[in-house]
Design a binder for these strands. Structure first.
Lengths: 114, 114
DNA sequence: TGCATTACCTAAGTAATTTATGTATATTTG
DNA sequence: CAAATATACATAAATTACTTAGGTAATGCA
């Protein structure tokens, strides 16, 4: 686990990108997927995830469908068109940020071009 | 400029690493160096920088020397031994974080090993 | 001489998170 | 079969790293 501050600002990027790659997903599924992909290194907390999903929906980046699984409710999220665009721009932003940081930190790993 | 949230949690890493590479530096110098290295993309605010420097000093990672330039005061910061270790571990942490993010985001650029 | 730059600093406000808590169903295990 | 764990949603208070705003003062320049 990292000093979690690094994660700040990446939650939206992660959510949007996962939905972009996997189609519709529900909240709990997202937490599990991230945990799996990150080898347990990133564990989204529900207190952060759900409010963020709600915000993304309110902002028009996601739409929801509610599904009944037995007696339980499951809420699937899907990217809207603007959501897809947002996902792409978020990835670009993150990518650009990392590149800048590498320059500032004196080129740690990757792209030692020049 | 990025959505500045990404910068959160990187300030200490940046400061420690810059001092590690450049020897003693003073606050204002750090802001200028970061601006230069990042091509203006990262502009440290003084409201964030100075308190952080003070904290790093209080935690034993930095020591200070005050210098008089004419009638103005300049405060130079130098890494302590634990500060150097901290710098290295911060870099490792950031590096590891980026690698993890790349996996989660589906390998954007770099290290497409496999 | 007045505006930008250098150089330090602190305090109030903001926003993304964590921690804590709540509810309820489903599944595994001893 | 009861109890613990996992699934699945949610909100609210507390934390915290930051931004914004404010302050002081010397120096350089047009």
């Amino acid at each position: 686990m990292y000093s979690k501050e690094l994660l700040k600002g990446t939650l939206r990027t992660i959510i949007l990108n996962l939905l972009s790659g996997n189609g519709k997903m529900y909240g709990y599924e997202i937490t599990q997927k991230v945990k799996e992909l990150s080898d347990g290194k990133i564990q989204l907390t529900e207190g952060a995830l759900y409010p963020t999903l709600h915000k993304l929906e309110a902002e028009g980046f996601l739409t929801t469908e509610t599904m009944n699984i037995g007696k339980r409710v499951r809420k699937y999220y899907t990217l809207t068109e603007t959501g897809s665009e947002k996902s792409a721009s978020k990835i670009r932003e993150f990518s650009d940020f990392v590149a800048t940081m590498q320059t500032v930190l004196g080129g740690l790993k990757t792209s030692e071009g020049k």
